[in-house]
């Protein structure tokens, strides 16, 4: 009778498996770093979209088990530390938004892309409103919302490009996609 050897993965296979597990989180961190790269200067503008919000929304809808609350919190905290703004602002806003997205996930998960995009529009509006309220309370006066609105409009406008990139990564790297 033929005895099967117990399967033991090679180090490369193990590394690949680890990468697959942490890929969404790493992409979230890359998105945070990308937010601080002065891409707008190419066109003489200082506007930067909320790349991290795109990553959080995408992975919360598509593979929430691979982007747990701890990853969302870490992405928000790193953003706070790098931005030099209010500590905990984006960590709080992103975790709150994540909770809302997870609760409404069944509405969007297998819907056409237009619905997925519209869901992101709603999330961006909600994110803007929450962050504006927190910052206004923190400083004790209403903060002018013009730059926030431009930031969110740009974020929603370029979301399809990033959704496509995340989709490619998901199809090529993640198992069972």
């Amino acid at each position: 009778m033929v005895r099967l050897e117990p399967y033991s993965p090679t180090p490369a296979a193990r590394a690949g498996r680890v990468f697959m597990v942490v890929a969404p989180f790493v992409m979230g961190l890359v998105c945070v770093l990308l937010s601080f790269v002065p891409l707008g200067r190419i066109f003489g503008s200082s506007l930067t979209p909320a790349f991290a919000l795109m990553a959080i929304y995408y992975w919360a809808i598509v593979r929430p088990e691979m982007f747990p609350p701890l990853a969302v919190f870490t992405v928000g905290l790193v953003f706070d530390l790098l931005s030099g703004g209010i500590i905990g602002l984006w960590a709080f806003v992103y975790v709150l938004i994540y909770a809302v997205v997870i609760s409404q996930r069944p509405l969007v998960v297998n819907a056409p892309f237009a619905v997925f995009w519209f869901g992101f529009l709603v999330v961006a509006v909600f994110t803007g409103a929450i962050s504006w309220a927190v910052v206004s309370i923190y400083y004790g006066r209403p903060v002018p919302p013009s730059s926030l609105m431009q930031h969110m409009v740009l974020t929603v406008a370029i979301f399809p490009i990033f959704a496509m990139i995340f989709g490619r990564v998901q199809a090529r790297v993640l198992p069972g996609s």
Partner: peptide, 12 residues
Amino acid sequence: AVSDAGGPFVDT
């Protein structure tokens, strides 16, 4: 200047 402000509430 190697970075941008990053967020809508901070200009650093």
